[in-house]
């Protein structure tokens, strides 16, 4: 009887509420603790730096775009295509002797074209975002295969083009690698756009109740279009960083980001009581996914078992958060 009175029921439900809101953070701490104890290499500066630059930056930029699209009530299955288009155009232009900045600008324009196509399909032809972007995914994949003789990679390991790649991947600002600087700028921009601006409020309203947004005098097509264009643009940035880092263009490599970006965004929604996507939540999702993959690799799991590990973790985070929340209601 004494023990029972120590923990009052409302304390338990408050703890459960905290666990529901912060299941991502709890999972993250648990995962970090586990890997730190299992392998000495995990918690070293070199490894964490490697995770940040090679796993987090590129996925996070794509996931920021996905967060915008999911907030608007849609989904973008073609982010991988936007990544690849930027990457392909960038690498091909450099191979043809163009200067680095020109390659970046035209590469990003190619990614933007993907976003514009998505927004036309969704807002003008009123195709559901899932089907519209799925169609663009198929078209984009074929386009790459047709332009590369059936999917042959383009490598640039030496000579003039290779040096141009270093401009992005191997430089730093005040000791911070350029890709990380780009990520920080991207986070700031998307955070302000989604959580502080009128645009973000409209996007949120469109995602939650499009009818109400329309009846309130919000221009639906305009805002939805911007969301898809912004998402493709961000994916394009990742495409440039990707090819600058690996000094090559490998067809269809952008698809690796698609499921992780969706996963990170939805893991991030557990942070909010209303299940809303948020920049902070998405970033936590990205970091969690990256750390788990890196940790499993270090303790010797192969690629396929890593996927299983990630899947189980995503499931646990979502199940704990949703289950507790339902229990509380």
């Amino acid at each position: 009887m004494m023990e029972k009175s120590l923990i009052r029921p409302d304390t338990i439900s408050r703890l459960a509420g905290l666990a529901a809101s912060y299941s991502v953070i709890i999972a993250f701490l648990a995962v970090v603790t586990f890997f730190s104890l299992s392998t000495p290499t995990f918690l070293t500066f070199a490894n964490l730096y490697n995770v940040l630059v090679n796993n987090i930056v590129m996925l996070a930029i794509v996931a920021l775009g996905m967060t915008l699209v999911v907030s608007s009530g849609g989904i973008d299955l073609s982010v991988g295509v936007a990544v690849d288009m930027a990457s392909m155009v960038f690498v091909m232009l450099l191979a043809a002797g163009f200067a680095g900045p020109a390659g970046v600008v035209i590469g990003l324009a190619a990614a933007l074209a993907v976003g514009v196509l998505n927004s036309i399909l969704v807002t003008r032809l009123r195709i559901s975002p899932f089907l519209a972007t799925l169609g663009v995914l198929f078209i984009g994949q074929s386009t790459q295969q047709l332009s590369t003789g059936g999917g042959l990679p383009i490598y640039m390991t030496s000579g003039y083009p290779a040096e141009q790649f270093n401009l992005i991947a191997r430089t730093s600002l005040a000791g911070i690698p350029t890709p990380v600087v780009i990520l920080v700028l991207g986070i700031a921009a998307v955070y302000v756009a989604l959580h502080r601006s009128v645009f973000g409020r409209y996007v949120l309203a469109l995602g939650i109740q499009p009818g109400v947004a329309w009846y309130s005098g919000i221009r639906v097509s305009k805002h939805i279009s911007w969301v898809y264009v912004a998402c493709a643009f961000l994916a394009g940035i990742t495409g440039i960083i990707l090819s600058a880092t690996v000094k090559s263009y490998v067809p269809l490599s952008g698809n690796a980001f698609l499921l992780d970006a969706i996963g990170a965004t939805f893991i991030g929604t557990t942070l909010s009581r209303e299940r809303r996507p948020s920049v902070l939540g998405t970033l936590l999702g990205v970091v969690l996914l990256a750390v788990v993959k890196n940790g499993l690799l270090l303790i010797g799991w192969n690629f396929y078992w890593q996927q299983v590990g990630v899947g189980v973790l995503v499931f646990l985070v979502l199940a704990v958060s949703f289950g507790l929340r339902r229990h509380l209601n």
């Binding site: 309203a205 939650i208 009818g211 109400v212 947004a213 009846y215």
Partner: peptide
């Protein structure tokens, strides 16, 4: 069409008049 049940009271009330509560889009 009238009110979004999953938006807060604040977000519903200001939805049609955000122009009055913002400067430079913020």
């Amino acid at each position: 069409h009238g009110i979004a049940l999953d938006l807060s009271v604040r977000e519903n009330v200001s939805l049609a008049s955000l122009g009055r509560y913002s400067s430079k889009g913020l």
